[in-house]
């Protein structure tokens, strides 16, 4: 559990840059497993407390008057270098808590949408969300039983993805596999970024 420097006197080198990637998808699809596979510690858990309306996040002033809800997020840390720290956040349930999703997605490099071929439709809400927001994403088909019976282009068609969106097979339990998915996402996000820059520039 050593995160590097143990002592940090005032006036030391500037703090590292922190960035994040989201791991999304339906219930039980392997989000926490993937976060854990590639992070340097086991997944941590943090909670946001929301008021009933979801408008006043963390507004505890009226707590006696009830109606708060707790949203849990799993996350992990990968210290890439002295000046770069990557955080992976598993997104909370897809059917509500969009308020928390907005907070998570703000500034994210991109998102991995995990899919299970036995219930592909479960990842529709995640895909809709990232498409609507313009967040770069890839679809990673997790290796549950039967995953290999599907061709990736069939998954692509079934999910009605834009042709450029990568669809890859993965095993969320394997560190190397999770790393490959993240690298595929980053390369895709870079391409998108370049394309958008060109579209805006001419």
């Amino acid at each position: 559990m050593d995160y590097g420097r143990s002592e940090r006197p005032a006036g030391a080198a500037p703090l590292p840059t922190a960035i994040k990637i989201l791991i999304a998808g339906g219930f039980g699809v392997g989000k926490t497993t993937m976060v854990g596979a590639v992070s340097e510690t086991r997944p941590l858990r943090t909670e946001e407390v929301l008021t009933e309306t979801g408008i006043g996040i963390d507004d505890l002033s009226g707590v006696e008057a009830k109606s708060t809800t707790t949203v849990a997020m799993d996350f992990g840390r990968i210290t890439l270098s002295d000046d770069l720290v990557l955080y992976l956040f598993g997104t909370p349930g897809q059917d509500r808590f969009w308020f928390v999703w907005d907070e998570l997605a703000l500034g994210a490099l991109g998102a991995v949408v995990l899919a299970d071929t036995r219930r592909l439709a479960d990842c529709f809400p995640s895909i809709d969300y990232f498409e609507g927001r313009g967040t770069p994403f890839v679809v990673a088909v997790n290796c549950f039983e039967g995953a290999r019976q599907f061709r990736l282009d069939e998954v692509q068609a079934a999910l009605d993805l834009d042709p450029g969106v990568p669809v890859v097979l993965c095993d969320a339990r394997q560190r190397e596999s999770a790393k490959e998915v993240l690298i595929t996402l980053l390369e895709h996000a870079m391409k998108l970024r370049e394309a958008r820059r060109r579209a805006a520039g001419d």
Partner: peptide
Amino acid sequence: PAGLPDEHVFEAVINGLRAL
């Protein structure tokens, strides 16, 4: 909020992941 970070951030993350 409007766009994505610098290209060099992406490159640094990719290289960092590869080196893990």
